[in-house]
Simulated scan of single mutants.
Amino acid sequence: FPNVEVSMTWRDKLLFAVPAAAGAGPLLVKVLPSLGLIAGLVVLLTMGPDFARQWNLDTGEGRAIYPILIAVMSASFALGGFAVKQYLNYKNKKLKFQKRVTDTLFFKNLVTNRGVLFTIVDSAEEELGKEMVLAYHHLRRAEKPLTERELDQRVEQWIEKHCGKHVDFDVRKALGYLSAYQHDGRPIVAENGGHWSALPLDEAKTTLDRYWDELFDYPG
């Protein structure tokens, strides 16, 4: 880095060479007769007409060249197509590797001090939101108001049952944030004599909606 050069490992070379060799075998069997005719033509041109007469070959008839031309064309198309296919496979593998390198460098570039800080803050806010939802849900489903200890035990038991994890639920923080969401003096959760209760879901949604609307009340 930054001058990245693409190179193939032994594993990549094997993954590229083995399928190529497997595909080349049947292809050679198909073009072998054509290669034989081409080899015969080369020998004929090299040794001359005397060699052909020794084997009783008629070189004077023009039609004798047609099978050889067809053989040359067939072998050229077959071998050329196979070579192009293997070259394109190599180029595709090279492009995939370069894309992987680019993606890796891109995401590593995002992991700066500011990015790490934003990630931590987002995770903390998300976990706080989960705690508030769990606290409200169990208060709303309870048949009677609950103390902090009772609510804490209910939430921890629910998490252990459904998630298989034992956690120390911070019930006091969740209740503190929930009680801060209020409208016209009615919070989403309220305490009375050490026992906590929650508004019905529709009223809680209305309270949240009005609370958020009043956060940015622009007198325009």
Rank of each mutant, 00 (worst) to 15 (best):
Phe169Ser: 05
Ala124Leu: 11
Tyr87Trp: 10
Leu79Pro: 10
Phe106Cys: 07
Leu69Ala: 10
Pro219Glu: 15
Gly220Leu: 15
Leu178Cys: 02
Val18Ala: 11
Thr104Phe: 14
Leu28Ala: 09
Asp12Ser: 08
Leu57Met: 04
Trp10Gly: 15
Leu88Thr: 11
Arg114Trp: 04
Leu201Lys: 06
Leu95Pro: 00
Lys165Trp: 05
Asn89Ile: 00
Glu5Thr: 10
Asp152Arg: 14
Pro219Met: 12
Ser74Ala: 11
Val84His: 11
Glu214Gln: 11
Arg154Met: 08
Val116Cys: 03
Met8Gln: 09
His162Trp: 04
Pro200Ser: 09
Asn3Gln: 10
Val43Ser: 08
Ala124Glu: 14
Pro67Asp: 06
Leu79Glu: 06
Asp152Ser: 10
Ala75Arg: 07
Ala204Leu: 04
Phe51His: 08
Lys130Ser: 12
Ala180Trp: 03
Lys130Asp: 12
Leu208Asp: 04
Val31Trp: 00
Pro187His: 09
Tyr181Ala: 08
Gly185Gln: 06
Thr119Glu: 14
Leu32Tyr: 01
Leu105Ser: 11
Arg100Ile: 05
Leu201Asp: 11
Val133Ser: 09
Gln86Lys: 13
Asn56Pro: 00
His183Glu: 13
Gly185Cys: 04
Asp168Lys: 13
Ala142Asp: 07
Pro2Met: 07
Val167Thr: 10
Glu150Trp: 01
Lys205Ala: 07
Arg100Asp: 13
Tyr181Val: 14
Pro26Gly: 10
Leu178His: 02
Lys108His: 09
Val101Arg: 07
Arg53Tyr: 10
Leu199Ser: 11
Thr104Ala: 15
Trp196Gly: 01
Lys205His: 05
Tyr181Phe: 13
Glu191Cys: 12
Leu95Val: 07
Gly185Met: 04
Thr207Leu: 03
Met73Trp: 02
Lys165Glu: 15
Leu79Ser: 08
Val18Arg: 08
Ser179Pro: 00
Lys30Gly: 00
Arg149Leu: 07
Gly36Leu: 04
Ala78Glu: 12
Arg141Trp: 09
Lys108Ile: 06
Leu14Val: 13
Phe77Lys: 10
Ser7Tyr: 03
Lys161Gln: 12
Phe97Asn: 10
Glu126His: 08
Tyr211His: 14
Asn3Phe: 06
Val84Glu: 13
Gly115Cys: 03
Ser34Met: 00
Lys173Trp: 01
Glu125Trp: 01
Ala198Cys: 09
Gly48Thr: 14
